[in-house]
Write a protein that binds this DNA or RNA. Structure first.
Lengths: 334, 334
DNA sequence: GTGGCTGATGTTTGCGTAAACATCGGCGGT
DNA sequence: ACCGCCGATGTTTACGCAAACATCAGCCAC
């Protein structure tokens, strides 16, 4: 910077002013400084800048494996939104969802250059790990019900699920089975609860829950069980991947979709429209979730707006070919 | 830090020594300092540290959309490997693969706190954008043939493709059609070239290339074309997602897989085993690619080892149910 | 005992930047 | 003409840390 100042014949402070787009610099001087910067290939040192300003303009994102579409898409949206706000995003992967690993990620975080953190995981693991967050680091959480303790942004799991169940009931199915996600996922739990609630509200019996782990393979295994249930005519899968496995299992067992069994998924991954048959599912607006996360965390940093509470992003039902009235037409109900 | 020093009754330099795990500190003193740190909740300021040391211990990763499995898995592996080496990973998303956007990402990078960059995209876009990288920032590239100009780490596209083609020829197919990826992807181009080379080497005719854009939807559209080709008994899809769409198109047109048409994919995404039928494909070791990227970039930073050149990671053929001898048994060939 | 050495610790300094304050020339109002 | 003010720029300082150097006590060899 001193070199630039010398070359431009000004003081380093003026260089600083130009580089920060400060007002009150003569246009002529400004051009000289810019020219000098270019000639010397000057680029501001972000470490020094951060040191002086006391902030890094960086947001940390903590998440488990990036193997679920939702996390990835959310992360991508966060990165994009953050970039638009002039913030960088630092990734803090947690290999295994154990308390030790989570604690490890947070202790790494302790000496990491971030102003705020967005956590994409069930917050219980976070609390259980008894982490102590740096006091000035703001936190926003996705996939959690901890709205009273943290700022939470999430898809409206409950609303989406009720839409799915209602869609199947409207088609005439007497009840809807549920292929749930893993128990330690808040999203999975929330979907299972809403499914149960929707059935109960409609006065329908709730079949036993079949559980997977989000993977297509687990959906296949669960599907083999469901295929054996004679009275199962409609299944709500907690995500599209498991729905894919379910479709394969049903196909193998000779149960046609949607003629014999209707299947509805959750997420609307890009591939869902290419399943056999194309999958009816609930579209999640991950981009919006990511955007809201960034906004929320920036608002917290600036200390305006609420410090906690939950923001829900609505889902949208995407009708494709995997749902239809039950065998016999379902006229018995409508 | 001064507070800690005061509380522990030592100088700030001793605190620094303890916090950096320096030798030559009396165990007793050390414990006192640690106690003081804990009491005051001291945590080192990474900005000051970076300023003093002249490095950030951060690697930037530039990539297009995280919607392809490969990029995501590579990114994840990079993040994990980097963390193991004590490095953080900063994400630089490029929304659209235009030169302007790429240039934008790099200019953001200019004032970003990174010591090195890993680029996950075709390097032509990078060069075309006439970016000027900060001189001391090291670069490693994935998905590119720029081995003579950059350090490149990539999956062995060519070897994998030849394995796929050979597998189909060995089953007795007279030739293999190719559902290729977009032209601007180096990986897609490389796979297409290798496919053509393998056929030529075997003295087989090369059918016209059908092109998609990696998405399942594009695979479906291409699949409708392929299904109309009476003599098409084997297809090599450049990735699993397109293979998924292809399977759907073939199914819709009444062409059975693998009885009438064999399909082989590339990537081995987790869902591939749940396709209808489960997909034979080439497994890519993304974790290894990511690990090697980090190693390569660190080696460059430390200035030991080669500054350029290409490292290839082998693929592995995963046999499932989507490939079989051609109708008629293929005995005419073997 | 004295010189030289080692290991433990303290002191000084500067990394690159930007806030705070200082300076200085010019301009309008009285 | 003089005061005061404003806009443009320069000077000083401190951000938190760690390298370099300085100090100092204890110990060994002769």
């Amino acid at each position: 910077m001193a070199d630039v100042a010398r070359l431009a014949g000004v003081s380093s402070q003026t260089v600083s002013r130009v580089s920060n787009g400060y007002a009150g610099v003569n246009e002529e001087t400004r051009q000289q400084v810019l020219a000098a910067m270019k000639e010397l290939g000057y680029r501001p040192n972000s470490a020094a800048r951060a040191l002086k300003r006391g902030e890094f303009r960086t947001i940390g994102v903590i998440t488990f494996t990036l193997s679920t579409t939702g996390n990835v898409r959310t992360l991508e949206a966060i990165a994009t939104s953050a970039a638009a706000e002039g913030y960088a995003v630092t990734l803090l992967p947690v290999a295994v969802p154990t308390q030790d690993e989570v604690r490890g990620a947070f202790s790494r975080l302790e000496e990491l250059a971030v102003d705020a953190v967005i956590v994409i995981m069930e917050v219980h693991l976070l609390d259980a790990a008894t982490v102590t967050l740096p006091p000035h680091v703001q936190v926003v959480v996705v996939d959690s019900d901890a709205g009273s303790h943290y700022t939470v942004v999430d898809t409206d799991q409950s609303g989406g699920t009720r839409t799915a169940v209602q869609h199947l009931l409207d088609l005439g199915h007497l009840t809807v089975w549920h292929l749930a996600g893993p128990e330690d996922s808040f999203a999975a739990q929330r979907r299972a609860d809403a499914w149960h609630g929707a059935l109960t509200d409609a006065g329908r019996p709730a079949p036993p829950v079949v559980r997977g782990d989000w993977s297509a393979e687990s959906g296949y295994r669960a599907g083999l069980e469901l295929a054996a249930q004679e009275d199962c005519t409609a299944v709500f899968a907690a995500n599209d991947q498991m729905a894919l496995g379910l479709l394969r299992a049903l196909h193998e067992r000779g149960r046609r979709v949607p003629e014999d069994v209707s299947v509805i998924g959750f997420d609307d991954i890009p591939e869902a429209s290419s399943f056999l048959p194309p999958l009816t599912t609930l579209h999640q607006d991950f981009a919006e979730v990511g955007r809201l996360c960034v906004q929320a965390v920036l608002r917290k940093m600036r200390r305006d707006g609420p410090q906690r509470g939950t923001t829900l992003v609505p889902t949208r039902l995407v009708l494709r070919d995997s749902t239809a009235p039950p065998p016999g037409g379902g006229a018995g109900e409508v």
